[in-house]
């Protein structure tokens, strides 16, 4: 099953007037993958997701989601896709359970085996005790969890999440991550999420896509991306009054040799390159390359 391609784009381009938002995106996402789309504001994240959801028609290039063009997708096709909206104030006076139940009824004709029951899902996103509360009384994090539940109620094969954990407290965030892992591992749900939170992308995603200026600047696991940036680990130490810093790919070997060579090493610190370092380096490299290309 892991070989199934769930999302495929070829030379996807999107322009608004003269402004090119997406510039030749080629992408394949397989069943069960959790992919995080990273990028600064205006890098084309939301536009990409909207095209994949069939809300927008690309300027050129082709898109296939679960084997069909999302723009001309049937209702049965739509039922296989879950979308987690960044809600605002819609349905404010509805009660939590009846709100989720409403979407349950809409999905009922398409309900696959093993789909969620309303109460089961409320329990899972930690809102069981809020079932009778009005949505306007929920905190920001609770409201987002309800949005996630709405996205999951049809037991989607593919789930889109736009900035899913904005407003979550650390506890809610951990629970949310567990839920995402369960979806991906146990239920083979393919997940595409956008986020600004690099630590979250690293924790959740098998694969990270960095969008920069409408192109894919980097594509790979957090580890693989870090390895592409020279010197993935930083070693710091002190000998007497002198401080030293060294960047290396093989920290263990380096430290072993260092300790053999220098018996007086103190304050030894080993710091792995974070996704944030990688992200900033890659975006910088990509910008430099693009500028060079433009100059030529």
């Amino acid at each position: 099953m892991t070989g199934d391609v769930v999302i495929r784009t070829r030379d996807l381009t999107m322009s608004y007037g003269n402004k090119r938002v997406l510039d030749g995106i080629n992408l394949e996402i397989h069943r069960g993958e959790v992919v995080a789309l990273l990028g600064a504001n205006g890098a084309g994240k939301t536009t990409s997701i909207e095209i994949l959801e069939g809300l927008r028609s690309p300027t050129s290039g082709s898109v296939e989601v679960l084997g069909v063009d999302p723009l001309h997708a049937s209702v049965e096709h739509r039922a296989k896709i879950g979308v987690v909206l960044q809600s605002w104030r819609d349905h404010a006076r509805w009660r939590v359970r009846e709100f989720l139940h409403h979407f349950f009824v809409l999905h009922a004709p398409f309900r696959p085996e093993g789909g969620w029951e309303v109460d089961e899902l409320l329990e899972r996103v930690g809102l069981a005790d809020k079932a009778r509360s009005r949505i306007l009384s929920l905190s920001g994090g609770q409201r987002r969890r309800l949005d996630v539940a709405v996205g999951l109620i049809g037991k989607p094969e593919l789930l889109f999440l736009d900035e899913p954990t904005v407003g979550f407290d650390p506890h809610a965030r951990r629970e949310f991550h567990e839920l995402m892992h369960e979806l991906a591992d146990v239920r083979e749900t393919t997940i595409l999420l956008t986020t600004h939170d690099l630590a979250e992308a690293e924790r959740l995603a098998d694969r990270i896509l960095i969008l920069h200026a409408g192109r894919i600047a980097a594509d790979g696991s957090a580890d693989a991306l870090a390895r592409e940036v020279a010197g993935t680990t930083e070693v710091r130490w002190r000998i007497g009054q002198d401080r030293f810093v060294h960047a290396t790919d093989a920290a263990t070997r380096f430290v072993r040799e260092l300790l053999t060579r220098e018996p007086d090493v103190e304050d030894l610190e080993i710091r792995r390159t974070t996704l944030e370092d990688t992200y900033l380096t890659m975006v910088a490299q990509h910008s430099a390359a693009a500028a060079e290309e433009a100059a030529r």
């Binding site: 959801e53 739509r78 909206l85 605002w88 819609d90 979407f103 004709p109």
Partner: peptide
């Protein structure tokens, strides 16, 4: 109002949502 606050969008992305 419900077009502005996202109620319509939330339903429009679902099967038979606009009709509902």
């Amino acid at each position: 109002t419900e077009r502005e606050d996202g109620t319509l969008l939330r339903l429009a992305i679902l099967p038979a949502g606009t009709f509902t």
